[in-house]
Structure formats: structure tokens, C-alpha cells
């Protein structure tokens, strides 16, 4: 430590914690989708990581399409790619809910297995139809640069955009849930399915849209995943266990808990990875989580609901 000046240490801390913030955003975006689905139907979607990969591929393929056919458009395609990723993931999620999940209500453990089967099939689809090779999007130049906050602190612009996008999505989702008719229907179905149905709301349709939205958010996370790493059919599996744990530590069904535990785990894992190798850092991260959960078995911010 003696070789660094105070300013340099400060810069390292700022940049390191910013990389933690990027990880936190991915955790939160993944966790957000899982949170919505869990809140709605008490199930954890094991195929969630595949929707992230679906979003990534949409972004990559769209970027390829744009560079080949409309080079003039290259700098702006990202703005359209993100809604497109959302749309594709939403569509697939909608169909999945219709044909698979809707048949499995009240059997949460079975849904776990069925969605795992789904994730195998989706991974193999990516491998067969898109190719097993890693793929990355050609990002426009304005996303690649970095913002020099001071002489020695460089913050990547893509990270800033990811942060902004996450905040935007969270606010948007909160407004959607409380202010729009569809959002209110979603909330009503979560709270009391029978009563909502009795009041004439199509709960099945609501379920499909809810599931679609959750998958779509994961798709957006995937689109932004391309700025951090290249996409391969099994790229999502590295994040899925972590995002499950984010959800569990936060206390299933608590939005505040999701943010706190996302931040806590991302910070912890970037600190641990600074001091030891990747695998050992993971072991310690998991052990800390297990011990925390031994004390707080319902998560840090659980609703005090009698089950």
C-alpha cells in the first residue's frame, strides 16, 4: 500500500466500487424478473438465465444486421435494440407461460424441474440455430469510451448507461405497477387470485403478461450484458445461481430487500475477488450467504407473512 498516494487509493476504490455497481445492476435486473415471477406464482424460474442470453443474442444479431445492411444507422441502433430485446424475450416468455407454466400452478417444485428442462432446450436451440461460438455486438463508439471524472478516475460509459437504465427500469416498473390498469391487475392477482377472478379480471391473461414482462426485463439485462462480456449459449449460467441467492437473501417478495442484497452481494464479491482468486472468492461469498441465511432464514427484508 505504501507505493500509492492517497489520491490513487481513492481512485482505485472509486473505480473498483463502480465495477461492483455494474455487477449490482446485472444482479438487480436478473433478480427483478425472478422477483416478479416469484411474487406472482411462488416459483423460481430456472430458465431465467436463458432469457438473458436470448436478449444478448437479439442485440448481437441486430447489430450484425445493422452493420451489414444499414451502416449509416450504426451509431443509433442500440436505442432500438433494447426494446427489441425486451420484445423478443417478452414474446417467448408469453408463449412459455401459455404452454408450460400455466399448467403447473400449485406445484412449485415441479415447475422448478420443468423450467430446468426448458433451459436445456433453449440452450440447445441457441447452439443449433445460432451457433456454439461466442458472439459479441459491435458497439457504437459513444458507448465504448470512458468518462474521466478526474485526472486519474476513469468510469466506463457503458457502466453509467447500465446504471441509468437500471434506475429507469425500476422507476418505470414501480409506476407501471401502481399507475396503470394492467399493473393494478397484476398486483390484484398477486394478492388474491380468486377474488380478482371473481371481479371479472382475466387472471390467466394477466399471468401471461406478467411472466412476459419478467422475461422481457431479463432480455434487457441480456442486451446490456453484451457490453460487458461476449455471449455464448451457456453464458447465463454463471449468473443464475447468484441471482437466485440475491433474491433469497433479500427475502423473497421484497423489492427493497432485492436492492439491498443485490448491492451487498455485488460489493462483497468485488471486494473478495480483489483479495483472492475467483473460485475461492465464490466459496467465501456463498459461505457468508449461508451463514447470513442461517440467522435470517426468511431473508433480510421479509414481509411478516404467515405461511
Amino acid at each position: 500500500m505504501g507505493d500509492y498516494t492517497f489520491d490513487e487509493i481513492y481512485a482505485i476504490v472509486v473505480m473498483q466500487s463502480f465495477s461492483g455497481v455494474s455487477l449490482m445492476c446485472i444482479y438487480i435486473l436478473m433478480g427483478l424478473g425472478l422477483y416478479i415471477i416469484f411474487g406472482q406464482m411462488g416459483v423460481i424460474n430456472m430458465a431465467h438465465a436463458e432469457f438473458l442470453v436470448l436478449g444478448s443474442y437479439t442485440m448481437c444479431l441486430f447489430s450484425k444486421f445493422v452493420t451489414e445492411n444499414m451502416p449509416a444507422f450504426e451509431n443509433y441502433y442500440v436505442i432500438f435494440a433494447i426494446p427489441l430485446s425486451f420484445g423478443v424475450a417478452f414474446g417467448v416468455g408469453y408463449l412459455v407461460e401459455w404452454f408450460l407454466i400455466s399448467r403447473l400452478y400449485h406445484r412449485p417444485l415441479d415447475t422448478l424441474l420443468a423450467t430446468w428442462g426448458l433451459s436445456l432446450i433453449m440452450q440447445q436451440c441457441f447452439r443449433s440455430f445460432i451457433g456454439a461460438r461466442e458472439m459479441s455486438a459491435d458497439l457504437p463508439e459513444w458507448l465504448l469510451g470512458s468518462w474521466a471524472a478526474s485526472d486519474i478516475i476513469d468510469i466506463p460509459i457503458s457502466g453509467l448507461v447500465l446504471l441509468l437504465l437500471t434506475v429507469f427500469l425500476i422507476v418505470g416498473l414501480a409506476l407501471f405497477k401502481t399507475k396503470t390498469r394492467m399493473g393494478l391487475r397484476m398486483q390484484a392477482t398477486t394478492q388474491n387470485r380468486e377474488m380478482t377472478g371473481a371481479l371479472g379480471i382475466n387472471t390467466k391473461m394477466t399471468d401471461r403478461i406478467t411472466f412476459g414482462i419478467a422475461c422481457g426485463i431479463s432480455g434487457i439485462a441480456g442486451a446490456f450484458f453484451t457490453t460487458m462480456a461476449s455471449t455464448s449459449p451457456s453464458a447465463g449460467t454463471n449468473y443464475i445461481v447468484d441471482s437466485f441467492l440475491v433474491l433469497v437473501v433479500g427475502g423473497l417478495g421484497s423489492l427493497v430487500g432485492l436492492f439491498v442484497s443485490g448491492g451487498f452481494l455485488a460489493l462483497l464479491s468485488s471486494i473478495l475477488e480483489f483479495f483472492m482468486t475467483g473460485s475461492i472468492a465464490k466459496v467465501w461469498l456463498y459461505l457468508v450467504i449461508f451463514v447470513v441465511l442461517m440467522k435470517f432464514t426468511r431473508g433480510l427484508f421479509s414481509d411478516k407473512v404467515r405461511s
Binding site: L104, A114, G117, L118, L120, I121
Partner: peptide
């Protein structure tokens, strides 16, 4: 390739 499709489908069919 076909095996993984089949395997994934087994999960779903068994459960459903």
C-alpha cells in the same frame, strides 16, 4: 444435439 432436446423434453413431459 437431438439428445439434449430429448432430455429437456423428458423433464417437461414427466412433470406435466
Amino acid at each position: 444435439a437431438q439428445w439434449l432436446f430429448f432430455y429437456g423434453a423428458t423433464f417437461i413431459v414427466i412433470v406435466l
